[in-house]
Amino acid sequence: MTQATPKKVTVVKCPTCKTDVVWGEISTYRPFCSKQCQMIDFGEWADEEKAIPGAPDMSDSDGWSEG
């Protein structure tokens, strides 16, 4: 008879408050620890305090034309 291997639990840090969060169905707001931390992060993105780096959008710059 073989023994079952125990399941490894993955724990991540909440991006907002750095609290440990179990990555699984018990953590409804993962990777956040709570709805409050999720909404704080969402607000930062909405206020453009956070952004993913990339090429600048040149469509609204002066001198742009379609040809």
Rank of each mutant, 00 (worst) to 15 (best):
G43L: 14
S61W: 13
Q36H: 15
K35E: 09
P53A: 08
V9P: 02
P6T: 00
D60L: 04
G63N: 10
P31W: 12
E48H: 12
T2S: 10
D47M: 08
K18I: 05
C37M: 01
P15M: 11
M58S: 05
P6Y: 09
A46F: 05
K8S: 13
M39R: 15
Y29M: 11
A4H: 09
P15D: 13
G24D: 11
V22T: 15
F32Q: 00
D20C: 02
D62N: 06
D20I: 00
A4T: 10
K50Q: 02
D41C: 14
D62W: 14
M1C: 07
E25R: 14
R30V: 10
K8E: 05
M58F: 09
A51I: 02
G24W: 07
P6R: 06
S61N: 03
A46Q: 11
G67L: 13
V21K: 02
M39F: 13
G63C: 13
C17T: 07
V12P: 01
F42M: 11
G63M: 06
V22E: 11
P56D: 07
G63P: 09
T2I: 12
T19V: 05
P6S: 03
K13M: 06
E44H: 15
V21M: 01
M58C: 03
F32R: 02
M39G: 02
P31S: 12
S34T: 13
K8H: 10
T10G: 08
D60H: 06
T2D: 11
C37R: 01
D57Q: 02
G67A: 04
K35A: 15
A4Y: 06
P15S: 11
R30Q: 10
K13G: 04
A4M: 13
P53D: 04
S27G: 14
T2M: 10
V11I: 15
I40K: 02
Y29G: 00
V9D: 05
P56F: 01
Q36E: 15
Q36R: 05
S61A: 05
S34W: 05
K13L: 05
P53T: 03
K7F: 08
M39Q: 15
Y29S: 10
K8Y: 04
